[in-house]
């Protein structure tokens, strides 16, 4: 892992993590200008505090589906989940289970982008891994390559869901998709929908989103001072979704 792992406060460092952004609070101080572009100066990342995440809470997953018109086909094998809640439990069932959301980790070494023949999957300058749906040929190699099950193929035609979000397109069949860190919101200087929801009324304030390249950002501060982990760090993909208390 790249980050500094000094654990100053030990396991109880929640005091630092407890600071939560107000929903919809802007990440960039200035109001967004007419023209913006992704830049390498930023490195967007997310931090999830597993201790705060509750088993029955689905605020993040609901918000994601609403914001991004993520299609459901009524077939559990083909429904698309950009973010999902996972229950994990030790095999001997000696300890209580832990609940946490899993989404695309926006890896720094993303195997999905490495295997994509057309560079439809690529890393944007600010570290967000995106699928260019205009270019994806639907070979599905990336789905095989991603260790986190973050990707799905659109199996059927989709239609605009009732009460959907007109700012986000619906899907063409035969193309692969996954979480995009709500890139359209991030470019507006807002936080991803899941983070907003988690910090809203329904959520448990377990998620923080921010810029790792900015040493003063909240996420950088926490990662500097509290022990955090990523899922399957042994694979060397350098995920940018960090977990605290895993």
């Amino acid at each position: 892992m790249t980050m500094d792992r000094r654990t100053v406060l030990g396991f109880g460092g929640a005091a630092v993590a407890g600071v939560a952004l107000a929903p919809g609070m802007t990440l960039i101080a200035a109001p967004s200008p007419d023209k913006t572009e992704a830049s390498g100066d930023q490195r967007w990342a997310m931090l999830i505090d597993v201790n705060k995440c509750e088993t029955n809470c689905t605020a993040c997953t609901k918000a994601c589906r609403q914001e991004n018109n993520v299609p459901l086909f009524g077939d559990a094998n083909r429904d698309i989940h950009w973010i999902r809640k996972l229950e994990i439990r030790d095999k001997e069932h000696k300890r209580p289970s832990v609940s946490l959301p899993v989404l695309c980790n926006h890896c720094e070494n993303p195997p999905c982008a490495h295997v994509c023949p057309t560079e439809a999957t690529f890393i944007r300058k600010d570290g967000i891994v995106l699928v260019d749906k205009h270019r994806c040929i639907g070979c599905r190699y990336c789905i095989l390559a991603c260790p986190y099950k973050a990707r799905s193929l659109v199996y059927k035609k989709t239609s605009f869901p009732e009460g959907g979000n007109p700012n986000v397109p619906i899907r063409a069949k035969g193309v692969v998709e996954k979480c995009n860190f709500c890139v359209h919101l991030v470019d507006e200087g807002k936080e991803p929908a899941c983070v907003q929801a988690c910090n809203g009324e329904e959520g448990n304030k377990a998620m923080v989103f921010g810029d790792l390249n900015d040493p003063k950002s909240e996420i950088s501060t926490i990662i500097r001072e509290v022990k955090t982990q990523t899922i399957r760090a042994d694979l060397g993909l350098k995920p940018h979704v960090h977990y605290k208390g895993l």
Binding site: H114, V115, P117, E119, V175
Partner: peptide, 25 residues
Amino acid sequence: DLGRPDRLLLTMMHMNFRSMFTLNV
């Protein structure tokens, strides 16, 4: 069997040489 066989030519226009698929082409 591609999801979008109509876009096959894209594999010729944009190549990612890190992909086993491109090498196989």
